[in-house]
Computed example of a mutant assay.
Amino acid sequence: MPTVVVAPDKFKGSLTAEQVAAAVSSGLRRVVAADVVAVPVADGGDGTVAAALAAGYEPVSVRAAGPTGEPVRTTYARAGDLAVIEMADVSGLVRLPGGRQEPLTATSRGLGEVMAAAIDAGCRRLVLGIGGSASTDGGAGMLSALGARLLDAAGAPLAGGGGPLGRLAGLDLTPLRARMGEVTVTVACDVDNPLTGPRGAAAVYGPQKGASAADVAALDAHLAHVADVVTVTTGADLREEPGAGAAGGVGYAALAVLGARLRPGIDLVLDLVGFREKLVGADLVITGEGSL
């Protein structure tokens, strides 16, 4: 009997990856005697946690701040000390209340809160899928939720979002470093944009998040200022690193502050779900994204 591996990504706007895999598997079984193995996959954006759960990871429900501060319920996937976290489902465009975009105030804080919850629960390896973000805050919200103190000239904490970042005067990473000491972070990232400039986070992705031309200019300047402060604090300037501009600068914060490793999203997810092991002995693989 032949072995068929059904490994689709989502058909966005129609079916989730799991629904596609179920439909294709059902159709195959109606017309041929085969051992059908369903392996829903994702590319590091929305559907990443679902792919991990379909592969047998444990779901863990968490309440965290949405992109405009309102609480939302999200889920990360856990296997041992490994947590798979999806930014889109907590700090993403799909979580904007009423779909109203907030280019200057949307925050990545919720992502950091889920990371903190996973760490507090004993996870020491974090995998972040950062596609679909709603914010351009340079990862400031994420860092704050993990313990970093971002302060203005008066010593007060900055408000959330990319708009206030131009007032950043001080950065204290001591509490964050204490929390993250034994934690490794891997980020699924499929873009090579730097943090700032004409190919940066604000210029390329800001308009998709509702930023006007004036907003883009302000956000780009604020991200450059953040990078200046982080460089002074850490001693390394990583603003030009490929992927630093991902997810409104979350890629930069992960690289420069968390010491993260960036990997192509599909490669990372295929490893998480054990795809290569499932290919052993297979006669056919059926895949697709958006269509077969």
Rank of each mutant, 00 (worst) to 15 (best):
V4I: 15
K10F: 09
K12H: 05
A17H: 07
Q19R: 14
V20N: 08
S26R: 15
V32C: 13
D35K: 14
A38T: 05
A42V: 11
V49P: 08
A50H: 10
A54N: 08
G56R: 08
E58A: 13
S61R: 15
G66I: 01
P67Y: 01
V72C: 04
G80F: 07
A83F: 05
G98I: 12
G98W: 10
G99N: 09
G99L: 10
R100Y: 01
A106R: 02
T107A: 02
A117H: 06
R124V: 11
L128E: 06
G129W: 09
A145K: 05
G147K: 10
L165R: 03
G170S: 14
R179N: 01
R179Q: 03
E182M: 02
T184I: 06
V185N: 10
T186G: 05
V191E: 10
P194C: 05
A202D: 11
G206T: 05
P207Y: 12
A213P: 13
H225T: 05
A227N: 11
D228L: 05
A236C: 09
E240H: 14
P242D: 13
A247Q: 07
A254K: 08
L255M: 11
L258W: 04
L262E: 07
R263G: 03
I266D: 06
D267F: 04
D271V: 09
V273S: 09
R276H: 15
D283E: 15
I286S: 09
T287E: 12
E289F: 07
